[in-house]
Amino acid sequence: MRLVPCPDCGPREPGEFVCLGDSGGHPVGEDGLAEALYGRANAKGPVEELWWHKFGCRRWLKLRRNSATNEFVP
């Protein structure tokens, strides 16, 4: 895992953060509620996620990362 780029605190240890997963969610559509609640894109490649800097500034962040390399992309 790479250092996590927090806009407040700069690059910090991943252990300070909680990754809360896909920031997009999935709207309830034709495929139903179960799909929206449980279905996951689980993309291999660029993903946009919510991160919480729990042991730092406690801010919620929206970060882009490549799940195939772990690199954060601006």
Partner: peptide, 17 residues
Amino acid sequence: ADGVPSYVQRGDFATIE
């Protein structure tokens, strides 16, 4: 398991600790 979803077969240091 590690806390961050990933396809990388390496793992993060927080888990090792």
